[in-house]
Design a protein around this nucleic acid. Structure first.
Lengths: 143, 143
DNA sequence: AGCAATCGTAACGTTTCATGTTACATCGCG
DNA sequence: CGCGATGTAACATGAAACGTTACGATTGCT
């Protein structure tokens, strides 16, 4: 594929969990998978990342499932982005450039600077949106 | 992420072409490929994209090669980004979400809004850096 | 005209990576 | 205990980027 959809899946999952009217049923990877339309294991992997980042909690045993560790208003997309392991916007050369050439020698540090600035700014922008806000936008689409 | 290196290659190529002290030799895909450390065809493909965007020109036949269509100060990374076909930061769901679920129904338009805003802001940021500026940074690394 | 150098592009192979899938051990409440 | 769910490993699948080979097209030079 190329374009990474993990961010999309993660936001979908968190938004789903933020909507409480699920007939009071526990949030399980299987139920969430129905909404995302994928395999429950994919959801569990995603939730695992989110748990490592402290955004959700899991309960095992009978009646197990997942809960948000914080209020949706307190979860920003920046945290989600970091949780799923950004991956960076652009990649460097596949094979290292020729360091015998002045350009080949200095291009990577120069680009790294540009890319870092972009990444920082993007994260800053992501920090302005919360899961609660996404949920509101999602529900506004309904009709 | 899909770690797309096309942006990196394109900037490398343009920066190389901006450095004139190449013993007055013509810029050919083969020579540039030595600096990038890859196959000349990869470079030609990249230059083809840049030409479509009007950033470089090609000459065929004997003594053929490539030249910048504009001064390095007049080429911004935003144009380069668009020339190589951005690709987008995040991807949507691999398989379309379940539209029978309120979240599955509204999540894509909601996310599209967020992603479009990000893309716009990133391009705006890229427009502040020119190829000439990258070249200066590259040369500053030399020692 | 013929040659040589280089572009332009198609076709194919290789590698890499995300996603999907199966399988199974583990946990913990009733 | 036994069920239902998590937690992971392992493998399959598919797509995309990159690399490579090949060859026709173009054009200055002799």
């Amino acid at each position: 594929m190329g374009a990474n959809s993990r961010m999309t899946i993660a936001v979908h999952v968190l938004t789903w969990m933020s909507l409480d009217r699920h007939d009071n049923e526990v949030a399980t990877s299987e139920r969430i998978a129905v909404s995302v339309n994928t395999n429950p294991v994919v959801i569990r992997r995603c939730l695992g990342d989110l748990r490592k980042a402290g955004l959700v909690q899991s309960k095992r045993g009978a009646g197990a499932g997942w809960t948000l560790a914080r209020e949706p208003e307190e979860i920003t997309l920046r945290e989600v982005y970091r949780a799923v392991g950004g991956g960076g916007l652009f990649g460097m050369h596949y094979t290292p450039p020729n360091t015998g050439c002045p350009i080949g020698f200095g291009i990577q540090p120069a680009l790294q600077r540009v890319y870092s600035g972009l990444e920082e700014q993007m994260e800053e922008e992501l920090s302005h949106t919360t899961v609660a806000e996404v949920l509101r936008n999602v529900l506004a689409q309904q009709r």
